[in-house]
Each structure stands twice: as C-alpha cells, then as structure tokens.
Design a protein around this nucleic acid. Structure first.
Lengths: 123, 123
DNA sequence: TTGCTATATCGTAAAATTACGATATAGAAG
DNA sequence: CTTCTATATCGTAATTTTACGATATAGCAA
C-alpha cells in the first residue's frame, strides 16, 4: 500500500536530516562501521570489509548509506577509497539530540505527567 | 539472502539497545509520535491516530515498536491506552549518544586525521 | 597498450518493514 | 448479559532493505 505522505505534517528538512542519520545508525553493521572509523580514524573500504563476514559489494552499499546520511566521508586515493567520519556532521547530530525534546525528559517530569493525567482524568 | 550474523563481532547488549532506539526513531512517523508526546506529555492512541493520515492499526503497530525500543510507555486506562514518553530511557539515550565516539569528533580532530592519513601514506 | 587492484554499481532474490482491513479483546455503560 | 468504544493483533499485500555475484570503472604498473 504505502501512502505517499504518511504524516499530516511532514518533517522539516532539519528533522529529515536528523531522522536519516538515526536510521542509518540503526543498522547493526553501519553502527559498527562508524565505531570502527571512530577508533581507526581512517580506513579504506577493504579494511572495513575485513571486519565483517559480508561481501565487498554489500559493505560498499552500506558505506553509501552512511555517506548519504552525512556520517562518513570517502576520498578517492588511487584505486582505493579512504573513509573517515564526518566530524562536523556527527557533532551536529550529537548537539541535535542533546537539545531534542528539551524539558520533556528531566528527572522531575514524572510529577508533571501525573498532573496532566489527572487533569485529563486519564490513566 | 541475509546471513544470520552479519558482523564478526556482534553488538553488545548495550549497543543493541542503543541501535534499536535509533532505528525506531529513524522512521518519520515514529519520530513524529515521539515529538507529539514530548509536547502533549500524554496522549491516548486515538489522539495520535488523528495526527496522521494512517489507519489505526498502523499507528498501533508503530507504537508497539516504540514501546519495544523503550521510548514510550503505554498504560491501559479503561478501554483506551494512555501513552507517554519513557523519560528515563530517553535520558539514557541522550547521555549515551553524548558520550559516544568520545574524542573522535572534536573540532581539532581534522588535524589528527590528516596525520593518520600521512602516516598511512593514504589520501 | 595490457593487466592488476580496489571499489562502485547493476541486477536480482530473500527478508524485513510498512500499510491496510478485518477480527479479537477488554473495559465501561446500559 | 448485551452493547459500545478503544485498542491490539491477525492475515496479507506492496514497498523497502539487505545481501549476493557479476560487471563496470578508475588508477597504477609493467
């Protein structure tokens, strides 16, 4: 089925970028690739492939997803491609989630929620 | 195809929990549901359905994913179910990503990476 | 040029996700 | 007990994701 617009108010470009990064990181292999790059700073594709049990073409495809989400950068180096994290964008992501849902998840929020529930005579 | 274990070193339980949350948030509708709950504090299923153009069963399924990721809590209230964010777990997520990839994405990392590339005579 | 190496892309198949309508369930109201 | 209401779950179809092998591409070396 799949309707063209699943939400009444579509995400803003900023939110789309945010959600795209989260989605890219939600895959276990891509999550690990990011962690490997964080540790090694720089890897060529072949080195990343060696960390996995997957085919080269599969890893290359995952790297594309990470690139399109802005999480990694690939630089052609002769026949190889050199990957590293996109530090600026990852910083953006961390700040973005740090400020997300501001004031909604503080330790004292439970009292607020209980009050809302009471007002609504619900729960 | 889908091999049973796509990575050589599978994610730790902590990393799995983290990735599961990110994946859940990567879907635009679920992303919005979380934002709606952050704003309203409390919603019953029907209210969330009204924010979307989707069927009630579809929204209910997405709420299940959010519940299983630990992002929301549902409390049965008569015939309805009252949803709110799971503040403790969202706090955990925010702290987890804040400390993630520590020291790898600071503004001065680019110099470090250039040095690594130089050492590797790569890129 | 020819050949080698590393990677990206293509074509395709399996699996997972997403969506729907229909149905089951559980509590409240009559 | 019966009915209504709200929601969850079921069965299923369309779409997307994930994975593979095969092929194309681009740079380097002989």
């Amino acid at each position: 089925m799949t309707k063209p617009n699943p939400t009444l108010h579509p995400l803003t470009p900023d939110e789309q970028r945010f959600a795209k990064m989260l989605k890219a990181l939600g895959n276990p292999l891509r999550f690990q690739i990011v962690q490997i790059l964080a540790e090694k700073q720089v890897c060529i594709t072949g080195e990343i492939v060696e960390f996995t049990t997957l085919a080269q073409s599969t890893v290359s495809q995952h790297l594309k997803v990470l690139r399109e989400a802005g999480l990694v950068e690939g630089e052609v180096d002769g026949p190889a491609t050199c990957y590293c994290l996109n530090a600026a964008n990852i910083r953006w992501l961390k700040e973005r989630i740090g400020g997300w849902l501001a004031g909604c998840c503080e330790p004292d929020t439970e009292a607020v929620i209980k009050n809302v529930k009471k007002k609504r005579s619900c729960c």
